[in-house]
Amino acid sequence: MERVVQVEGLRKVFDAGVVAVDGISFHISRGEIVGLLGPNGAGKTTTLHILLGLITPTSGSVRIFGTDPFSRQRGSILERINFTSPYVSLPYSLTLRENLRVFAGLYNIRDAEEKIDELLNMFGLSDIGDEPVRRLSSGQITRLGLAKALLNEPELLFLDEPTASLDPLMAERTRRLLIDINRSRGMTILYTSHNMKEMEELCHRIIFLNKGRIIAEGSPQEILERYGEEELERLFLRIAEEGER
């Protein structure tokens, strides 16, 4: 199966010698939903930002669709991926529709207005499409970010805690939507979350990071059996507590 993401010996050392990512290697095959899991400071966000080409690694290699995201060919990657995070702000003075129109233009989306209407409806935002973003709740902003991330129907989707500020009903709808999109379109998804049950429900594989290193990799069930636990949440707490000692 085609490897959409290939990471070899990835290492990132920030100023003052802080090692955020410490020589990790992994791959993601086409059509997989892979969860990047770990306590705060484990290296999840740094790894995600390197894959997106936002920060350069100290050493190691990254290939997205076989291409180096730091090369001159990175444009061929950008049109095939998308990303959302509740920690990335959209222009507050623009309305929801205006925000989506800007990104639709960047991605050269055909029939942009039709696509925007479809996504606003999908995430329950149709009634407030002409409201400025500054008036939205955190949950509504998260939903807008998800709508933006699906505009170009990406082959590879990076999701950083996509349901963190959603109410339980919308979070469940979002999980069902992601599963449906993955199955119907074969969309590959790299997913970070602190919601353990969500990880178990969504992910084909989990990459468990701690202190910048991969300490476990496999299906949720394989990892639980390896550590002798019944729930990912128990395992997460156990590893986080051990890391503080």
Rank of each mutant, 00 (worst) to 15 (best):
G139R: 05
N108T: 04
M1I: 02
I50K: 09
L119K: 09
E231A: 15
Y92P: 01
T45N: 01
G31D: 09
E229G: 11
I24E: 03
L202R: 11
K211S: 15
G129A: 15
P132S: 10
P132E: 01
P57T: 04
S126W: 07
A171E: 01
L159C: 12
S138Y: 02
S219A: 10
P168R: 06
H194Q: 10
G105H: 10
E113I: 10
Q73G: 08
T192P: 13
R80Y: 13
H194G: 01
D111Y: 08
G38H: 12
G9E: 12
F26Q: 06
K211I: 07
S184N: 03
G139N: 10
E242I: 07
A112R: 14
G9L: 09
L190F: 10
S165A: 15
I206E: 07
P91N: 10
N40P: 06
R97H: 03
G243E: 15
L232M: 15
L36Y: 07
V19D: 02
E2W: 02
R175E: 13
A42T: 04
I50F: 10
A20R: 03
R3G: 02
S29C: 12
L146M: 07
R74Y: 08
R74C: 08
G31Q: 06
Q6N: 03
V21R: 05
K12A: 06
L177D: 07
M170W: 04
G43D: 04
L125P: 09
P154C: 13
K148V: 03
L96E: 06
Q221F: 09
